[in-house]
Design a protein around this nucleic acid. Structure first.
Lengths: 349, 349
DNA sequence: TTGTACGCGTTATCAG
DNA sequence: CTGATAACGCGTACAA
């Protein structure tokens, strides 16, 4: 092993003790100088400490501080799947708000493995994060239990956990569905197929599907159906689309997609079947995507106020951290319909 | 304040001392039972401890462990921008590899603010993460300095930091560019416009642009040009496209996009100009996206082995953590060309 | 005003 | 084989 291969000196961390020694004072004095600028120190001493701190460029160890204080100005965020653009967009909003309030966000990705939620929360919690922002599954209440055990505040985004009494921030799904259906009906569509990912226990999916069904019931002469499209289910989806066309000979058919993943899957299926959005089948889907304007005649979407959702979630949590006692709140934000060619009457290509 | 408003009992953490008390042994014994299963304990004692641990369902505090051990089996990942699908894809690969090796990944997002890199690294480091995976800027060497100061191993992904002696994992940009240019030339295009984000100091952008220029030089009768497209620069881009068509009356023109962001921006511009991919202008771009097949006749892309990149980065780092001393390595992986309609001869619509 | 001593939850060392 | 003790880095009563 040659000289250059030796790893850089471990550079032992400079501790408060080092500073104290250099300044010729006690650790307590240094600590006071740092944390309680108000308690008067002799100018002389203060100067010496300040110099020592600068000289060694000392930074307190957040971990040791957390260990002592039981608090860390850190917020733990757990996300079911970072791959999901929605989650990421929300994350950004939350992050900004946290930063403004002097908190840092530490992120944990579950990679769609619900079992890992417990672990993530446990680790985060043991590192004394002050609170949680959760966009996860309701995995048999394990996550809920874990959070409760820690006694730390949490706010849920998008997915409500059954029975977990925490703040909840989400799109107004019912309102958004109503808006979507109304838009399609106004555009002349009379046969609407709602496509959703397997509903499982995900509250937002449940809410949307339920809203769709009641909504359809309120419109005379409009028929609705629901198709659940799983991961490997390309065939089923194609068949559903064919059936949709078949049964809507004299009624204009449209698709209502439950989220961006479904939109992608649907677009692929349409392509394989040689069907055109707008011209052959109307389309409207949850979640605005940067590529929505580029597909076919442009895809009509319901944009979620992701940034605002994140911001509010963070604000909510921070209020709790500062001691707000009120009972669990529920914040529902309206979506915004972005109309494009896919849902225009007789939609162009 | 009513009763129900009282926050759930803080549920004081159960410590090793509690377990010791319940089991009627010393803390040391409990610790040994947990960490050194090999050192034989009296069956009787072991049983008592085990029971106590179970009864209180005790979990050691990772933070306290980290404080003591100076190690945490945590890997810190810092990403310039979570919004970037590339980063996220790589993250997933890295995460899997880390998990398999018994490490957890803690993620920090810079939200495209280079100044925050120092802070992120400092916090992560103070929490005793064992190493870093960095996909960030080369912000005047601040990040590099910070990492060096900690004496912890790091691996760089995609973006090399000038002068930082760390492992580096990335796409073989030169090879990929060559592959792309060759593909376009073979398809009959003779006038190629390479569009890139402002190069700044980002090594991957530099590498790609440089490779493009030398590559063009190697092909007789093929002309190349480069356009830098900033964030608010829609106008400039449109003008560049118009100029491209103008000067390629008798030569088939094509666009080579430097990454997914540029691809999106370019597609918008094409749409506004009423130009069709394939039919009017050929296209090929870095980064495969799920929506690439859906735009126009399908977009030809160069897919990066993101999962593998992440996996290798993690493996690299873990090897370091386990004491591998070798000098900084450089791992370059080949891209894969996904040919679609946008680069077919006389491309369909 | 400043220093001493202790505790946060663990683990390693050293006696016993 | 097991228990007491020190130490990790910091903050804070309490004493001086």
């Amino acid at each position: 092993m040659r000289l250059k291969d030796i790893p850089p000196a471990p550079a032992a961390r400079v501790t408060i003790a080092d500073v104290a020694r250099v300044a010729g004072v006690s650790k307590a004095t240094v600590s006071r100088f740092l944390n309680h600028r108000d308690t008067l120190l002799t100018p002389d001493i203060a100067a010496r400490v300040e110099a020592a701190v600068a000289a060694l460029n000392y930074t307190p160890s957040p971990m040791a501080q957390a260990l002592k204080r039981g608090t860390s100005r850190l917020i733990g965020m757990v996300v079911a799947d970072v791959t999901n653009p929605y989650s990421v967009a929300v994350l950004r909003g939350a992050e900004k708000a946290c930063k403004d309030a002097g908190y840092l966000v530490m992120l944990f990705n579950l990679g769609n493995e619900p079992e890992r939620e417990r672990e993530a929360i446990a680790v985060l919690s043991s590192y004394q994060v002050d609170g949680f922002i959760l966009n996860t599954f309701d995995h048999g209440g394990k996550g809920r239990a874990e959070v409760a055990r820690r006694g730390k505040p949490a706010v849920l985004i998008d997915r409500r956990h059954s029975g977990m009494s925490a703040d909840f921030v989400s799109l107004d799904n019912a309102g958004a569905v109503r808006m979507g259906v109304t838009h399609l009906v106004d555009a002349g569509y009379r046969e609407i197929l709602y496509i959703t990912e397997p509903v499982k226990n995900v509250s937002s999916r449940l809410d949307r599907q339920a809203a769709f069904e009641t909504c359809i019931g309120e419109h005379e002469g409009v028929r609705g159906a629901v198709h659940e499209s799983g991961d490997g289910d390309a065939g089923g989806l194609e068949e559903a689309l064919r059936a949709l066309r078949r049964r809507s000979r004299n009624r204009r058919p449209a698709i209502f997609s439950g989220n961006a993943v479904i939109t992608l899957r649907t677009a692929s299926a349409m392509m394989r079947l040689g069907l055109r959005f707008g011209a052959d089948i109307g389309f409207l889907g949850f979640d605005e995507a940067e590529w929505a304007p580029l597909v076919g005649p442009g895809l009509t979407t319901i944009a979620q106020p992701t940034d605002e959702l994140g911001r509010l979630a963070a604000r909510c949590l921070i209020e709790r951290l500062e001691g707000l006692p009120s009972p669990p709140r529920q914040i529902l934000l309206p979506g915004e319909l972005v109309a494009r060619g896919s849902s225009r009457i007789g939609g162009g290509t």
